[in-house]
Design a protein around this nucleic acid. Sequence first.
DNA 1: CGGTTGAGCGCG
DNA 2: AAAGCGCGCTCAACCG
Length: 578
Amino acid sequence: MYLLLAAHPRGAALQELTQAGDPQPANPGPRLVAPGELAAVVRELEARRPGGQPPRWIWHRTQDWYPALLASGVEVERCYDVTLCGNILAFSQFSAHTDYARNTDRVPVEDPMLPPKALLPPRPPADQGALFDDPGAGPAPGWGLEDLRAEYAAQQAALAGVGMEENRRHRLQLLLAAESAAAMVAAEMQHAGVPWREDLHEQILVDHLGPRPPAGQRPQRLEALAAELRTLLNSPGLNPDSPQDLMRALHRNGIEVKSTRKWELRESSHPVIEPLLEYKKLSRLHTANGWSWLDAWVDGGRFRPEYVVGGVVSGRWASRGGGALQIPRQVRGAVHADSGHKLIVADASQLEPRVLVALAQDSSMAEAARDQDLYAGIAAKGFGGDRAKAKMALLGAMYGATSGEAGRLMPQLARTYPRAVDFVERAARAGEAGGTVTTRLGRSSPPPSERWFLSQRSTTAEEQRRAESIARSRGRFTRNFVVQGSAADWAACWLAELRRRLRTLRTAGTGGSGGTVRAELVFFLHDEVMVHAPAERVDACIAAIEESAVAAKELLFGRIPVEFPVSLAVVDSYNLAK
DNA sequence: CGGTTGAGCGCG
DNA sequence: AAAGCGCGCTCAACCG
């Protein structure tokens, strides 16, 4: 069953569709639901499951509807996020020939980066509007039921227009489903929150920085280091937070650096370097993840960041607020399981190089990737067993290194693994020429920038050099896009599969949906997931995580001889993982 | 004064 | 040893 859920002046409008491929409204007509009733209505429809299948909710944006449902204690099994799917379909090379991708004046699909709008409760009816059923009082253009149905129909038509060669239509359909599932996971993770012990975090801060200072002041330890720097550099007024100020002081003392970056500072052996680096490290802790961060982002023992699915063109998630995807190792000790629970931290090890192997169908590299440690496997054949070299070469190939040691290793890598190197080289050439590249499941890179087009018209030698530099930069982007984006395809499938398994685990087991016995996905970071699980559910969760990784591989690539191993840690505290 | 940019560093 | 991808956040520095 397919159910449209759209905004309506009096709350929400619900409409059943006969089937996905032929999105005509079924009888009876739309059902209007008052704001206060929606959660109960959705709960009932989820539970009824006609034909054994739960409905698929079709809505404009998951983040506008789902958080309020979750807050009312209602989860849904399946959805179709029209905004996320529309963004994929509008740019995918797989659907580029369809009317949908060509038609620029269809209902605008919004930028996924826009913050959530609370659609319920809707704004109160206008004073007179309720009397006259004022059409102007309806939802914003593009947000009503009929717009939603039309947009969904257009997207389904586009999908139907995708060719069957190399399973393209099926792959794109899979991507749309995985992306929609990811949107649900993101809302559910934000709802659950990362278990965060404020007391442990504060202890970390006190250990490193000293007691909490009054607002606007440096903590003791930072103040002491700042005083030491001023003495060592004979600069009584030095503000070590100012790069310009700091650079001048360093120069006055004969330390000739071109920037104040730490790897450049490490070159010098001056006695000021060590306390300076210490200052920078602690200053970072204090400003980015100190007491004010705790005040702002941790509440009731949970860190609840906002995840932005589709926020990165490659398909990776972005986040907004609290720096959720940059939790430094220094404070990971504060991420701590509730009593009777464990954190299961699972990491798809060496995901991107393995994805490259599968994309390029490089059988020699696949052989090497049979090893649990892919880099060791590569090193064994082609690098005389030197793992560090093999790793640098492979990373260099995926990022487009041209100089330095990584650049020098490229020919060596290409001799042993020509197919893998050729694959990324072709992606780079396409990007340099202004072309588009596409991930395994069909997410395509954006068109070249304005700058790229302008630079194409260069005439002078100086402009030519500039144009080549811009082209190479785009080549590095598309080279990495196919790998990073296909890894994101894999991760989205992994998440979607894991979500489904955790849900069956939840309903099948003791306690049903009741409170604390649930295993919950609480964190996701590109190639890593964290499940917060009751101790007695840990083994079942581990099995679900591993099965999901296998399923993700087969969904993307079929049964190929490339392993995607998952490294697992069952811990009380995040800092003990890895 | 508020808004934007760049440097620097955190994560993958 | 410090090049080569994708992000977010904070501060200083700069701009109007």
